[in-house]
Amino acid sequence: MEVRTIKVFTTVDNINLHTQVVDMSMTYGQQFGPTYLDGADVTKIKPHNSHEGKTFYVLPNDDTLRVEAFEYYHTTDPSFLGRYMSALNHTKKWKYPQVNGLTSIKWADNNCYLATALLTLQQIELKFNPPALQDAYYRARAGEAANFCALILAYCNKTVGELGDVRETMSYLFQHANLDSCKRVLNVVCKTCGQQQTTLKGVEAVMYMGTLSYEQFKKGVQIPCTCGKQATKYLVQQESPFVMMSAPPAQYELKHGTFTCASEYTGNYQCGHYKHITSKETLYCIDGALLTKSSEYKGPITDVFYKENSYTTTIK
């Protein structure tokens, strides 16, 4: 009895394709271990004539594949690729409408935090270190965002349907971005203890939790000093293409032309909904596939993004 075979390709990165001759009487799992086709788990399936010449994702289970996976995804987590594939199996079914010149995501599976993050990423200057993220990001900007969303979920250790947080998501993504040249110098002034300067680099240099107003941050924000008295913390120097200011959701007025974009969060910790506000020729609110415009805006804002380049204080 002759062994019926077909020729397929296996890959971990969709760049390096490895030619395989597979036995049609055995499952993919018996031949390769966990195997995925377009995100779908085909591990328990036997090869079919229609699979001839198709590319299958496999887990990096030998040295060659491990090197290829690390170079593309910059992670050695053995569960990463499987999590990416199972997320992709959902995100490829989502709709990605162009809204006001940006790629958004039609609401499904509690994905409003991903839509808000995706919209924000198209408006701030950011370059990702893992080629996987950078490639998928370019495709997302062009309207094909399924891979990018699935990668975000995998890097953030999230599953489809789980509630997510924009600030946490951005923080994970910033860790995989090139923020080497970003720098922030802060000064804390206390009447009792004097003053202390701190220099922050990388992710810490672009994120701040405690106030939404970048102007206020430049002037000074009140913080408790270690001595128990009130101290003032203010920005001395900022070198970065953008800054992200966050605070627990509270009524906040966004003035046209003073910011790049913002995240609105309605609801409580267990259950809520994100919308995205962007400042173009007027203010726009993007909620999944829905767009509304207004000249002014007041609502429960939790993150505001500002364009920056270089700032030095005039406070002496």
Score class of each variant (00 low, 15 high):
Met1Ile: 03
Glu2Asn: 12
Glu2His: 09
Glu2Gly: 10
Glu2Ser: 09
Ile6Glu: 05
Lys7Asp: 13
Val8Pro: 06
Phe9Glu: 10
Phe9Gln: 12
Thr10Val: 12
Thr10Ala: 10
Thr10His: 07
Thr10Arg: 11
Thr11Pro: 05
Val12Ser: 06
Asp13Ala: 06
Asp13Gly: 06
Asn14Tyr: 05
Asn14Trp: 08
Ile15Glu: 08
Asn16Leu: 05
His18Leu: 08
Thr19Ser: 14
Thr19Glu: 15
Val22Gln: 06
Asp23Phe: 11
Met24Thr: 11
Met24Glu: 11
Ser25Tyr: 09
Ser25His: 10
Ser25Cys: 11
Ser25Leu: 12
Met26Ile: 14
Met26Ser: 13
Thr27Phe: 15
Gly29His: 08
Gly29Thr: 03
Gly29Trp: 09
Gln30Leu: 13
Phe32Asp: 05
Gly33Asn: 03
Gly33Gln: 03
Pro34Cys: 12
Tyr36Lys: 01
Leu37Phe: 12
Asp38Met: 09
Asp38His: 10
Gly39Thr: 14
Gly39Pro: 04
Gly39Cys: 14
Ala40Thr: 11
Asp41Gln: 13
Val42Lys: 08
Val42Gln: 12
Val42Tyr: 14
Ile45Pro: 06
Pro47Arg: 04
Pro47Val: 08
Pro47Leu: 05
His48Gly: 14
Ser50Thr: 12
Ser50Ala: 13
Ser50Gln: 13
His51Ile: 05
Glu52Tyr: 12
Lys54Tyr: 15
Phe56Cys: 07
Phe56Arg: 04
Tyr57Gln: 08
Val58Arg: 07
Val58Gly: 06
Leu59Met: 14
Pro60Met: 06
Asp62Asn: 15
Asp63Phe: 08
Asp63Ala: 11
Thr64Lys: 11
Thr64Gly: 12
Leu65Glu: 09
Arg66Glu: 12
Val67Ala: 12
Glu68Gln: 09
Glu68Ile: 06
Glu68Ala: 05
Ala69Pro: 05
Phe70Arg: 10
Phe70Gly: 11
Phe70Met: 12
Glu71Gln: 10
Glu71Thr: 09
Glu71Arg: 10
Tyr72His: 13
Tyr73Ser: 05
His74Lys: 08
Thr76Ser: 13
Ser79Thr: 14
Ser79Arg: 13
Phe80Gln: 05
Phe80Val: 03
Leu81Ala: 07
Gly82Val: 15
Gly82Arg: 12
Gly82Phe: 13
Gly82Tyr: 08
Arg83Phe: 05
Tyr84Leu: 06
Met85Thr: 06
Ser86His: 07
Asn89His: 12
Asn89Arg: 15
His90Gln: 15
His90Asp: 08
Lys92Phe: 04
Lys93Phe: 11
Lys93His: 15
Lys95Met: 11
Tyr96Cys: 03
Pro97Ser: 11
Pro97Thr: 12
Gln98Val: 14
Gln98Cys: 13
Val99Asp: 01
Asn100Met: 10
Gly101Trp: 06
Leu102Ser: 06
Leu102His: 07
Ile105His: 03
Trp107Gln: 01
Trp107Tyr: 05
Ala108Lys: 07
Asn110Cys: 05
Cys112Asp: 06
Cys112Glu: 04
Cys112Pro: 07
Ala115Lys: 06
Ala115Arg: 02
Thr116Gly: 07
Ala117Cys: 08
Leu118Ser: 05
Leu119Met: 08
Thr120Ile: 14
Thr120Phe: 02
Leu121Ala: 10
Gln122Met: 05
Ile124Asn: 04
Ile124Phe: 06
Glu125His: 07
Leu126Phe: 08
Leu126Pro: 07
Lys127Gly: 07
Lys127Ser: 13
Lys127Phe: 09
Asn129Leu: 07
Asn129Glu: 10
Pro131His: 03
Pro131Tyr: 01
Ala132Ser: 06
Gln134Ala: 12
Asp135Ala: 09
Ala136Gln: 09
Tyr138Ile: 14
Tyr138Ala: 15
Arg139Glu: 13
Arg139Cys: 12
Arg141Phe: 08
Ala142Leu: 12
Glu144Trp: 06
Glu144Ser: 12
Glu144Lys: 11
Ala145Asp: 01
Ala145Met: 04
Ala146Arg: 04
Ala146His: 08
Asn147Phe: 07
Phe148Gly: 03
Phe148Cys: 04
Cys149Ser: 06
Cys149Arg: 02
Ala150Gln: 04
Leu151Tyr: 05
Leu151Ser: 06
Ile152Ala: 07
Ala154Thr: 12
Tyr155Ser: 01
Tyr155Cys: 04
Asn157Ala: 05
Lys158Gln: 05
Thr159Met: 12
Val160His: 06
Val160Gln: 05
Gly161Arg: 03
Gly161Ala: 05
Glu162Pro: 00
Glu162Arg: 01
Leu163Lys: 15
Leu163Asn: 05
Gly164Thr: 01
Gly164Val: 06
Asp165Val: 02
Val166Phe: 12
Val166Asn: 02
Glu168Asp: 03
Met170Leu: 11
Met170Arg: 01
Met170Trp: 04
Tyr172Asp: 08
Tyr172Glu: 07
Tyr172Ile: 14
Phe174Gly: 03
Gln175Tyr: 08
Gln175Leu: 07
His176Leu: 13
Asn178Pro: 03
Asn178Arg: 09
Leu179Ser: 05
Leu179Phe: 06
Asp180Lys: 11
Asp180Asn: 13
Ser181Met: 15
Cys182Thr: 01
Asn187Val: 11
Asn187Gln: 12
Val188Met: 08
Val188Ala: 05
Val188Leu: 09
Val188Lys: 11
Val189Leu: 09
Cys190Ala: 02
Cys190Glu: 00
Lys191Gly: 12
Lys191Gln: 14
Thr192Phe: 09
Thr192Gln: 12
Cys193Trp: 02
Gly194Lys: 06
Gly194Leu: 02
Gly194His: 02
Gln197Cys: 09
Thr198Ala: 10
Thr199Met: 09
Leu200Ile: 09
Leu200Val: 14
Gly202His: 06
Gly202Leu: 01
Val203Tyr: 15
Val203Cys: 08
Val203Ala: 12
Glu204Met: 08
Ala205Leu: 01
Ala205Val: 02
Val206Leu: 04
Met207Pro: 03
Tyr208Leu: 06
Met209Ala: 15
Met209Asp: 09
Thr211Asn: 09
Leu212Met: 04
Ser213Tyr: 02
Glu215Lys: 07
Gln216Val: 07
Lys219Phe: 05
Lys219Gly: 08
Gly220Lys: 02
Val221Ile: 13
Val221Lys: 04
Val221Glu: 05
Gln222Phe: 09
Gln222Met: 12
Gln222Gly: 08
Cys225Gln: 02
Cys225Ala: 01
Cys227Asn: 01
Cys227His: 04
Gly228Ser: 02
Gly228Trp: 00
Gly228Lys: 04
Lys229Pro: 02
Gln230Arg: 13
Gln230Asn: 12
Lys233Asn: 06
Tyr234Thr: 09
Tyr234Gly: 01
Val236Asp: 01
Gln237Lys: 14
Gln237Asp: 07
Glu239Lys: 11
Phe242Leu: 01
Met244Leu: 04
Ser246Lys: 01
Ser246Gln: 02
Ala247Ser: 07
Ala247Cys: 10
Pro249Gly: 00
Ala250Tyr: 09
Ala250Glu: 12
Tyr252Val: 13
Tyr252Trp: 14
His256Glu: 11
Gly257Trp: 01
Thr258Tyr: 07
Thr258Ile: 07
Phe259Asp: 00
Phe259Glu: 00
Glu264Gly: 07
Thr266Leu: 10
Thr266Val: 10
Gly267His: 11
Gly267Gln: 14
Asn268Ala: 15
Asn268Lys: 12
Tyr269Glu: 15
Tyr269Ile: 15
Cys271Met: 15
Gly272Asn: 00
Gly272Glu: 02
His273Tyr: 00
Tyr274Glu: 00
His276Pro: 02
His276Ser: 05
His276Ala: 00
Thr278Met: 12
Lys280Glu: 10
Lys280Ala: 14
Lys280Thr: 09
Lys280Tyr: 08
Lys280Pro: 00
Glu281Thr: 07
Glu281Ala: 06
Thr282Ser: 13
Leu283Met: 12
Leu283Asp: 00
Cys285Gly: 03
Cys285Val: 13
Ile286Phe: 11
Ile286Val: 10
Ile286Glu: 00
Ile286His: 01
Asp287Ser: 02
Asp287Phe: 03
Asp287Asn: 01
Gly288His: 04
Gly288Leu: 01
Leu290Asn: 15
Thr292Tyr: 10
Lys293Asp: 10
Lys293Glu: 14
Ser294Glu: 10
Ser295Ile: 09
Glu296Gln: 14
Gly299Asp: 02
Pro300Phe: 14
Pro300Thr: 15
Pro300Ser: 13
Ile301Pro: 00
Ile301Tyr: 00
Ile301Asp: 03
Thr302Glu: 00
Asp303Tyr: 06
Val304Ile: 10
Val304Cys: 05
Phe305Lys: 01
Phe305Pro: 00
Tyr306Asp: 01
Tyr306Ile: 01
Lys307Ser: 15
Lys307Cys: 13
Asn309Arg: 09
Tyr311Gly: 06
Tyr311Thr: 09
Ile315Ser: 15
